[in-house]
């Protein structure tokens, strides 16, 4: 038999990497939450100050609320649009490959590019959408300038960017539904909608839950879209939790406080994902 050390040598890069870039940062992050530190001057112990501040920090709660608004619009929209397109693509149609590739295009392109593009579509005076609205006799919408509309606008854009991936996942799911289920339903005289809601939806439930979990995790990382598009405005209506943590850490150099926000937010993410997973297992 080979040297007993060999397996350990093979996994050692992982262990070193884990200690350096996961274990140490997580531990240090917890230590930081009890301190005030701007990197330059020495660390100062402040007890629970950061946590107390977090609970009374209106902007942080606003950023959490914004992230929630984003998720509440983004996830259902994503599922409905992706399922609809997947259902159509699953019919025996020509050029399926082409359509699939077209919907997938925004998935591979950088979020920065997508954001720059949609900034033009959403422009108030010269944007394509408002021009169309004016043309058909409606008034302009402040897609990115109205605090009530800006976050939904970003959620629509994010759906456009990601939906292609979920179309593919749903297509895979749809192909696992045995065709004799539909044949039996046809014999019973079921309508298209009945088949969709009574057979398709229950059969692809696992895929739906997977899409919910994946887009929840993705939605909680929302950063570049508001950063480029609105900078978090108007009136902080699009500041996401990650954008706020970024600002606290790298604009103001509040390392202790930013760590506290990071840990608290990560806790919320884990909690939400665990609840979602429990929901799936019970099902």
């Amino acid at each position: 038999m080979k040297n007993k050390l060999t397996p350990y040598l093979l996994v050692s890069p992982y262990i070193i990497h884990f200690i350096l870039f996961v274990a140490f940062p997580v531990t240090f992050s917890i230590v930081l939450t009890f301190h005030k530190w701007n990197i330059i001057s020495p660390m100062e112990y402040t007890g629970l100050t950061n946590y107390i501040r977090l609970f009374s920090d209106a902007t942080f709660w606003k950023s959490l609320g914004n992230t929630l608004v984003f998720l509440v619009i983004h996830i259902p929209l994503q599922i409905i649009v992706a399922l609809l397109i997947a259902e159509i693509l699953n019919q025996n149609l020509k050029f399926r490959g082409f359509f699939r590739a077209a919907f997938f295009l925004p998935v591979v392109v950088s979020g920065v590019v997508v954001t720059i593009l949609w900034q033009q579509l959403y422009g108030f005076d010269v944007g394509l959408l408002n021009r169309l609205l004016v043309k058909i006799g409606l008034s302009k919408i402040g897609w990115l300038t109205d605090p009530d509309i800006a976050m939904p606008s970003i959620a629509i854009m994010a759906t456009w960017k990601n939906v292609g991936l979920y179309v593919i996942l749903f297509l895979v799911g749809l192909q696992t539904v045995p065709s004799h289920f539909y044949e039996a339903a046809d014999l019973e005289g079921a309508t298209r909608w009945q088949k969709f809601f009574k057979i398709t939806i229950p059969m692809i439930n696992p895929t739906i839950f997977m899409v919910v979990i994946l887009s929840t995790i993705g939605g909680f990382s929302l950063f570049i879209e508001p950063y480029v598009m609105t900078g978090g405005g108007p009136l902080n209506s699009t500041i996401s939790a990650v954008l706020y943590i970024y600002k606290q850490g790298f604009f103001y150099y509040h390392m202790g406080y930013a760590s506290t926000l990071g840990i608290f937010f990560a806790g919320i993410i884990l909690l939400v994902v665990v609840i979602q997973k429990k929901f799936v297992e019970r099902d």
Binding site: F24, L32, F220, A266
Partner: peptide, 12 residues
Amino acid sequence: PFQITLIPQYLL
């Protein structure tokens, strides 16, 4: 979640 390591990883 990466949000937890963002700040300390930068400090590292």
